[in-house]
Structures are given as C-alpha cells and as structure tokens.
Write a protein that binds this DNA or RNA. Structure first.
Lengths: 203, 203
DNA sequence: GTCTATAAACAGATAGAC
DNA sequence: GTCTATCTGTTTATAGAC
C-alpha cells in the first residue's frame, strides 16, 4: 500500500483516458495508447483484456467526473441562487481542466445511448427538489414561473456548450486561445447573472 | 436536365450523409454506406475515389446546412428581439429535422479543427452588427449592458445543447421520446423569453 | 456504370520467450 | 510483468469482367 499507484496499470489508464477522450472509441488506436503510456501494445491486453473493456473502464471513470459534481450541488440544501452560481463556477472549472471531456461524452452516448443506463443513477430527485424551490420562490413573489427542466437545461447548456463549440466560437469571434479562455472565465459571472435576472420579478 | 437528380451519385450522397452523421467518420463503414444506398461498395469509389473525399463532400454540405442559417438572421436588418426569436425557432426547427447533425459537427471539428478554416467565412461581421444594436439599445435605456459574444453564445447554447445532450436529459428528466420532443418545442418560447427578460431594464 | 473477386494495409488480439 | 513476433479478421481500395 503505497497510497498512490504509479504502476503500469495507472500509466495505461491515464494514457487511455487521454487518447479515448481526444479521439473517441472508434478513432483511438491501441498502438497509440501504448505509445502514450510508453509501453508495449501487448501489455494493454494483459491488463484490460480488450479495447472494449479498457474503454468501459475509462468511460465509467469519466462519467463519474462529470455528473456527480452537478447532481450534488442541485440536491444540496442551499438557496436556488447559490445553486446556480455554484454550478456555473464548478462546472466551468471542471471543464477547463478536462477540455475534451464534453465532446467525448456526448459523442459516445449518442453512439450508444444504452451505455447511460448502467452508469446512471436516477437524477429525477434533483428536478423535484429544484422544482419545489422554484414553487416556493414563485409563491413568495420573488421569481416568475419557469419549469425546473428548462431552468436546469438553460444552466447546463450555457456552461457546457462553449466547450463543445470552442473551435467554432473561436473562429466566429476571431479569438485566439488565450482570449477564448478569458471569455470562458467571464461566463462564470455572465451565466448566473443571465439566469437570475431572467427569472427575478421587479418587486 | 431533369431538375432533381435521383441518380446513383445522389443515392450515395444521401446514404453517406446518414451514416456519417450517425456514426462519425471513424465509425462509418463504406460497406454500410453501400448497403444504405442499395448499391455495391465499389461504386462508392467510382463516384468519390476515397472515404476521405466522400466525407469531405458530406461535411461541406452539412456545414452549409448549419451555419448560414444563423448567420443570415444575425446579419439581417431587423430588431434585436426579433433576431433572438427567429434564431430560436429556425435553429430548433432545423435541428428537429437533422437530429444527429449537432453531435456530428462538433465531434468532427474537434477531431480536426483545421477543417473549419476552409469551409468558414468570417462571421465577425455578425458580432459587430449585433454589438452595435446592443449599444443602441443600452443608450436608449432599454437593456442592460452585455457583450454580443455572450448574448450570442447564450442563445446558441440553449438552442443546440439540448439536442447534443438528448439521451442524458431524457434520462435525467425521466422523459420518453415524445415528451422530450414536447420539451424541445417549448424551448422555442422559453429561450427568447429567458434571454430577453435577462437583458431588459425595468423602465 | 455496375458488378465480383481480390489485393494491400491495418488493427485487435494472442503465443511464447525471457 | 514485459517484450517480440505473429495470427486473424476487418476495411479501404483496386482490377477486371460484363
């Protein structure tokens, strides 16, 4: 028990995560993963048996990086406004550290939607909690009515999509990489501000 | 000149578009495209020389389906509010008719960002036009200040992302396909309402 | 133009030495 | 555990008959 494993299995895992998230399952080559890990191709099969098995391990880990983060915030017992702010900051920060993850996840899921089923705990509870919070605020006259589904869809869309469309937006906006990263940073403020001011009443 | 070509080349093109947009370049098989077109695999090479060439033809056509639509609305000489409403309706309608297109385009672009360069006319002008409209409205006291980049990013994100994340949202929201389509339909109203009420002043 | 048959290259997986 | 060498199936692409 050395705590952190820097053994071969970890090397492979890290390399596979990089290659798979960059190229997708179909575009990834076992040879390339082996090169990235600095080991031989046969070792991949020794540790993970097949490309499919290796991919499933990576994909599971990636899903656990992506979804619990937002679920836990949406379910936590804090005011709605704070949830919106926290989701924006946390999600954008996570995506900054894992730039390829968004395109990868949604591409692989649409390639095989059933993949979701196994790795996915029901998030319906989140919507109920947020829905109740929304109702309470509407009753109090603080916000105008909106379905929880749309509110959450708006929030996640505005956070995630700019990472998915990065090259397109960069081209359209005439930004270089640094400028685009500053643009992303600004969104931590812009998104909560947009959502909150869109639902607030004038009272 | 019969006007509409229903010849072999068109058959191939249509089949290739379907398979490529569903599976991506790496996941698509020439055999599957041939099957879809009801012809032989060798004919694909007869008409398009290689998988790469066939893909480039498809990709170019897909980009022309996706981008000019929004560009033309953003550049048109109509009030800002109307632009926001028209983009929402047009874009969602286009994506309803081409459900796979969004995941496909962004996956392929991040696989090879340089692909954009050739097929992309500068859209910087759009942002300038929208930027000037925004400034005018701010001066008139009608809206609060926001960068054109963020406004447009918000708009496109909220329209496109629900198609990219369809299986995830369906799972999270516990919707079947019909319910999700109704949800998408609602967004034609929700998105303009969200954006407009987020920038309007209280005057 | 369209087909069948096949070449040529590639990629995942395994055998077996060390 | 790690390597080299190789097998096996797949996939793009071409040759050549019709």
């Amino acid at each position: 028990m050395t705590g952190i494993d820097t053994n071969t299995e970890q090397l492979i895992f890290k390399a596979a995560r990089k290659i798979f998230t960059q190229k997708g399952f179909d575009g990834a080559r076992m040879q390339e993963i082996a090169n990235e890990a600095g080991i031989n191709k046969a070792l991949l099969h020794y540790y993970f048996r097949s490309k499919d098995k290796l991919f499933e391990a990576i994909f599971k880990e990636v899903l656990n990086t992506v979804f619990p983060k937002i679920i836990s915030v949406l379910m936590s017992p804090i005011p709605l406004i704070q949830k919106i702010e926290q989701v924006s900051v946390n999600y954008i920060e996570m995506l900054k550290q894992n730039p390829d993850i968004a395109v990868f996840v949604f591409h692989e899921i649409s390639r095989n939607p059933l993949r979701m089923v196994g790795n996915f705990k029901n998030a319906g509870a989140d919507f109920e909690i947020v829905g109740r919070q929304l109702e309470a605020e509407v009753q109090a006259g603080n916000i105008i009515p909106i379905k929880a589904e749309h509110l959450i869809a708006n929030l996640i869309s505005m956070c995630v999509f700019p990472f998915i469309a990065k090259p397109v937006f960069m081209g359209m906006m005439g930004m270089d990489n640094d400028a685009y990263m500053r643009f992303i940073e600004e969104r931590k403020q812009v998104i909560p501000q947009t959502i909150i001011s869109s639902i607030k009443t004038n009272k």
